[in-house]
């Protein structure tokens, strides 16, 4: 089957910039994947997100090379409006990306732009709110909502257009830990239950690592790693270079590995670590 996202040798320079924001990017994502994307500030994560939804080069000028294909559409030759029905986007700032006053109208915005009939808009708003689990907020004013709720509205507004891919650019950076976990869990559900391909840009590795099967790391405009979070977090040199926030439990087991005490997979979450530690201590005790 044809991959849903295919980036081929993509390079992009912002106007008046000598250094490329992205250089020689090759990335293939199959439909239904849940992909994490991380890297230090200025690595080109946002640029890649904007290249996927067609903002680059349709809205943001600059020099580009290579090709970005989403669901068989060349993003450079397809108007943003056409891409809107294929790929949905959620951004960092919950405040600035919402255009309406009331939740329902926010969801209606994209559907109205696509000239969907009034009855169908009603139906799709209902369905999208159900999917995101915020049906009770339908008639609430956006101003009264918390940051996490606003982000859920932004996700619902994207989902209402029935995209096959969702790209989220650090949607949790302004949320508390609880809100962050909720958003990631919601994305997992959308991925599992509705088969939406998810590309989540995220700095908080400890939240991301246990939940995504595949993690792509960007640094200075290039992809420097594309593997499972376990494989990536095992590479001390890489994680230090990227300044990745390694979960403490993973760091502990890396030390145990280096000391030659532990040979198994690196745990990414505390309860996983607890189990491994119990097993480790148990086997030592029985040997003694």
């Amino acid at each position: 089957m044809e991959p849903i996202i295919k980036v081929e040798n993509f390079t992009f320079y912002y106007p008046d910039s000598q250094a490329p924001a992205l250089e020689g990017i090759n990335l293939t994502v199959r439909e239904g994947e849940f992909l994490g994307l991380t890297g230090p500030a200025g690595a080109g994560k946002t640029t890649l997100a904007l290249a996927l939804n067609g903002i680059i080069p349709n809205f943001q000028g600059g020099r580009m090379g290579g090709k970005v294909m989403v669901a068989g559409l060349d993003t450079a030759k397809t108007p943003c409006a056409r891409l809107a029905g294929v790929i949905g986007s959620v951004f960092q700032d919950p405040e600035a990306q919402l255009v309406a006053e009331v939740v329902e109208d926010e969801l209606a915005f994209g559907l109205e732009n696509l000239a969907v009939s009034r009855e169908e808009i009603q139906r799709r708003i209902g369905a999208a709110l159900e999917m995101v689990g915020i049906a009770s907020l339908r008639h609430r004013s956006l101003r009264e909502l918390s940051g996490g709720q606003k982000q859920k509205v932004a996700i619902a507004a994207a989902v209402a257009l029935r995209p096959r891919v969702l790209v989220l650019d650090e949607p949790t950076s302004e949320l508390d830990p609880q809100g962050t976990v909720e958003i990631v869990a919601l994305l997992q559900r959308l991925n599992r239950d509705y088969g939406i391909t998810i590309l989540l840009i995220e700095q908080k590795i400890s939240v991301l690592a246990p939940r995504v099967p595949r993690l792509v790391c960007l640094n200075k405009g290039r992809i420097v790693a594309d593997a499972s979070p376990r494989q990536i977090l095992a590479q001390e040199k890489l994680t230090t270079e990227l300044g990745l926030e390694v979960p403490p439990v993973t760091a502990l087991f890396r030390m145990l590995r280096r000391a030659g005490v532990y040979q198994g997979d690196l745990p990414l979450e505390v309860d996983e670590g607890q189990r491994e530690l119990g097993r480790l201590l148990g086997s030592r005790a029985s040997r003694a």
């Binding site: 904007l50 939804n53 067609g54 903002i55 349709n58 809205f59 943003c80 409006a81 891409l83 809107a84 029905g85 790929i87 949905g88 986007s89 951004f91 600035a96 990306q97 919402l98 255009v99 915005f109 994209g110 732009n113 696509l114 932004a154 507004a157 994207a158 257009l161």
Partner: peptide, 8 residues
């Protein structure tokens, strides 16, 4: 940008 990605 957010409006653009929703077919404005």
């Amino acid at each position: 940008i957010s409006m653009e990605t929703r077919a404005f």
